[in-house]
Design a binder for these strands. Structure first.
Lengths: 146, 146
DNA sequence: ATCACTGCAAAGTCTTTGCAGTTCC
DNA sequence: GGAACTGCAAAGACTTTGCAGTGAT
């Protein structure tokens, strides 16, 4: 049932971590839940603020995110904001549309993965493409009115 | 003639700056020439090192790059290296393929601009898209061998 | 009980800012 | 000459690291 999803996530995330050889700690699971439920990329500061339930140090947040990135559940995004943002890895490929004035972020439907295959085929020096990042920058309507 | 292009650049860049309302200083022109001739995105450190002919402070480099970005001759690129890189804006749209091990950067042919138009059309909240950044991350053949 | 993990504090990068002196127009 | 620009030094933001104590298995 949908109502139970948060509880289920906790167990699911715990297993995920253990199977990858990491311990299932409150901080790691808390951050994973936050990122999953956020729906948009979050900065370290935002993560620290929103994780008020669990006490966690900023240094630990950085270390946890490095681990989560390694496992492949989280990825780093750069929206030219002067710091890294992190987002939960979803099934569907998607990208971002960022307002350069107010920093609002909107999701954009993903490209079909024929694109990356084509890029790899055309390159003579690369053996594999492991990830890609497509970001669009512009002005949102609300900022355009001002 | 091709041999004269560097000289010509100097005058061209000077005019460009003046027409945009900025003064044509040695540092600004030097950085522009560097970026134009580099062919790949450069970090502030690389720019400082390569601009040995002209004495320039790092703080000034940051300020100059902000100006050049405003004018639209240079753009900031983020290759997930923990710092910003800057590259000369060329006529042809192009993107990057970055080796996550050795940081080698290769150019990738640009997407046709139907892509950004389509993204804008599909968004309900955005009024314009002013730029986009597509980066591909992977492993180059030389790193794959190791 | 053991080893991984975390908090705390310190240090390391990258970037911005204030101000006085210099340069371009 | 005057406003714009730069160097220098200091501060600010973001991120990493060392070490001793804590917690998961």
């Amino acid at each position: 049932m949908h109502r139970k999803s948060v509880q289920d996530d906790k167990g699911y995330f715990a297993n995920l971590l253990r199977q990858a050889g990491y311990k299932a700690t409150a901080g790691r699971i808390g951050l994973l839940k936050l990122l999953k439920n956020s729906g948009k990329p979050l900065s370290i500061q935002e993560l620290a603020k929103k994780l008020s339930e669990v006490k966690i140090d900023q240094a630990t947040i950085y270390r946890v995110l490095t681990v989560l990135e390694e496992i492949g559940v989280v990825r780093q995004v750069n929206l030219l904001h002067g710091h890294a943002d992190y987002e939960f890895v979803r099934e569907d490929d998607h990208h971002h549309l960022i307002c350069t004035k107010c920093r609002r972020v909107e999701d954009v439907a993903g490209c079909d993965d024929g694109v990356t295959r084509q890029v790899l085929r055309r390159s003579t020096n690369f053996a594999a493409i492991t990830q890609h990042s497509f970001e669009f920058f512009g002005i949102c309507k609300s900022c355009a009115r001002k």
